[in-house]
């Protein structure tokens, strides 16, 4: 793929096929931690590290081990173990080497194991038959898209929380409807390229 193609791929992954608003992956942490801006940003950066690394590792394992041995049916099991192990390793590494970053990301790291955006991206990369460079660009951009949307959304929610909302809509329902309107805006980015 040419350099231009990679840029289009990145742009697509961040804005048009946004991981939350278009692919519906990672909705749980999106609704769960977007209440506070600080925790949203912490979660976003932790997700960037984990999605990029786990996609690259599972890409490598798929083409180096699973495919030559004809064990592709094991992929789901292998990926989830890769992700769980990777999260654990990153956690130990940060604790030892960059304690300040560990304290900032600390509580969000274990939560990422069950973030379906991570497993989803690892699966997408294989399903779309990306090469190594495309995998790197795609998974990094997907994670940047996650950070971008969760940050925008956390600022929106802090405004909403101060508004006068009917009782039944308070909390998650109004958050979902806001996300729907945000998704409509992001859907319009699709017309920029084609």
């Amino acid at each position: 793929m040419t350099f231009g193609g990679l840029i289009v791929l990145a742009f697509n992954a961040i804005l048009i096929q946004n991981v939350i608003l278009n692919q519906f992956l990672g909705t749980c942490p999106f609704l769960g931690v977007s209440g506070k801006r600080q925790s949203a940003v912490g979660m976003g950066f932790a997700v960037i590290v984990v999605i990029t690394l786990s996609s690259l590792v599972s890409w490598g394992l798929y083409y180096a081990i699973l495919k030559p041995l004809g064990m592709t049916y094991m992929s789901t099991l292998v990926y989830i173990l890769v992700i769980a192990a990777l999260v654990q390793i990153i956690e130990m590494f940060l604790k030892k080497v960059i304690p300040s970053l560990y304290r900032a990301l600390g509580i969000y790291l274990p939560l990422i194991t069950t973030n379906c955006a991570v497993l989803g991206t690892a699966k997408t990369v294989i399903a779309r038959k990306f090469n190594f460079l495309e995998t790197l660009v795609y998974s990094f951009s997907i994670a940047v898209g996650f950070l971008f949307v969760i940050y925008i959304f956390s600022t929106l929610r802090s405004k909403i929380a101060r508004g006068d909302i009917p009782k039944a809509f308070q909390g998650i329902p109004i958050a979902l409807i806001t996300a729907g309107i945000l998704a409509m805006i992001f859907a319009k980015f699709g017309q920029l390229i084609i």
Partner: peptide, 9 residues
């Protein structure tokens, strides 16, 4: 996709 969020909400 946007309708999914709104209807679930």
């Amino acid at each position: 996709p946007p309708a999914a969020f709104i209807i679930l909400g």
